[in-house]
Amino acid sequence: MRLIEVTRFGGPEVLTLTEAAEPAPGPGEVLVEVAVADVLWVETMIRRGHGGAYFPVRPPYRPGVGVAGTVGAVGAGVDPGWAGRRVVTRTDERGGYLERAVVPAEGIVPVPDGVSLPDAAALLHDGATAFGLLDLVPVRGGDRVLVTAAAGGLGALLVQEVRARGGVVVAAARGPAKLDALRRFAPDVVVDYAEPDWTEQVRAATGGVHVVLDGAGGDYGRAAFDLLLDGGRFSAHGTPAGEFAVPDREATRARGITVTGIADLRFPPDQARRHLRAALDAAATGRVTPLIGQTYPLHRASEAHRALEERAAIGKALLTV
C-alpha cells in the first residue's frame, strides 16, 4: 500500500511517498478504500514543527486526518451491510494520506446520494466546523457578518450558510482570483484585504458588523475586530496570517463582545459527526457547495501543502487516491 510519511520536520519536501503492508480491519473496524483525502492548513503547521500544545505531533508520523471512499472490508462485530457503502471518516495516527485506511466503525458517516466523494471529503472538517461554529456564534436574520479568509474551504461554506440563514455577508479575501471564486456564492459585499483601505470599504458598506468569523488571523483578524459593533460576536479560529487574532479581554468586556476561540471548536466525536451530517445534508439539497479549487494525486502531496503555505490555494485542496 502506498502512503505518505514524515520522518522529520521541514518544508513540503519532507512529505515522502513510501510503501507499507496492506492493512486489515480488526474487531470493530472497517477498511476504507480511499478515493479522496482531506488536506488542512493546520497540517502544514504540524509538518513544520509548529503544532504546539494543541497538536503535539513528533516525527516519524503519518500525516492526514480524514478520507472519503468505499468500505472494502469489515472486521469482527461490524454490520456486514457497511461493505460497499460510500463513507467519509476521520482517521487516527495511522494517517490519512494513503490508499487504504482502517478506522473504527463507529466513526464512519455515510455519504448521501447526490454528494460526490470529493465534496464529502471537503466537508469532513470544514463542513463540520462551519456548522458547529454557527451553533456557537449564532447568526440572526439581518445580521451583518464579516467572513475573513472567505475563499478558503471553511470560509466559502460560512459565506453560503450565513446567507442561507438570512445574514448580510461581507466576504474578505486576498487577490482577484479568490474574489472571483467567491462571487459565485453571491455575498452582499466582497473586499480585497490586500488593499490598504479594505476596512474603510467594509465600514462604508455596512456601518460596522455584528459578527466576525475570522479565518485569517494576524493583522487581518485584528483589523476585523475593530469593525465590530458593541455587543457583537467574534470568532478567532484561523491562523494563515500568522496567529490567532484573539482580542484583548478588557476591550471585549468593555464593549460587550463575545469571543469564541479555536479551543471551542474542538468538538467531541459524536458532536463533530452531528455537524458533519448537517453539512452533508445541506450539500445534498444544494444549500451549500464546497469550493474545491485544486486536487493533487497522492504522490504530489507536497504540492498541496506548498499551495496552502503560499496562499495560492482557492478553497479546498484535496488528494486523490
Score class of each variant (00 low, 15 high):
G52I: 01
G81R: 14
I46N: 04
H299C: 07
R233N: 03
V65T: 14
P110Q: 14
P269D: 12
I262F: 12
R174P: 00
A24E: 15
D38I: 05
G315H: 05
Y193H: 15
E250H: 13
G286H: 08
F131K: 10
E195P: 00
H305P: 09
V109L: 00
A279W: 05
L123S: 10
G256V: 00
R94G: 08
L228Q: 08
A21I: 02
V246R: 14
A120V: 01
R287T: 11
G96T: 13
D188C: 02
L182W: 04
L319N: 10
F244I: 01
Y61R: 11
L124H: 12
L134Y: 04
I4T: 09
M45K: 13
R222H: 13
G69P: 03
A284G: 10
D226F: 03
V111C: 05
D264E: 15
G217Q: 10
P176F: 01
R58S: 09
D188H: 12
E93W: 10
G49D: 02
F225D: 07
T70Q: 10
L228M: 04
V102F: 00
G132Y: 06
L117F: 01
I262M: 14
G315V: 00
L40I: 11
L40Q: 15
A278N: 14
V139L: 03
G153E: 05
T91R: 14
E106Y: 05
L31T: 07
G231E: 11
I292V: 11
A120Q: 10
A272L: 13
R184G: 03
V168L: 12
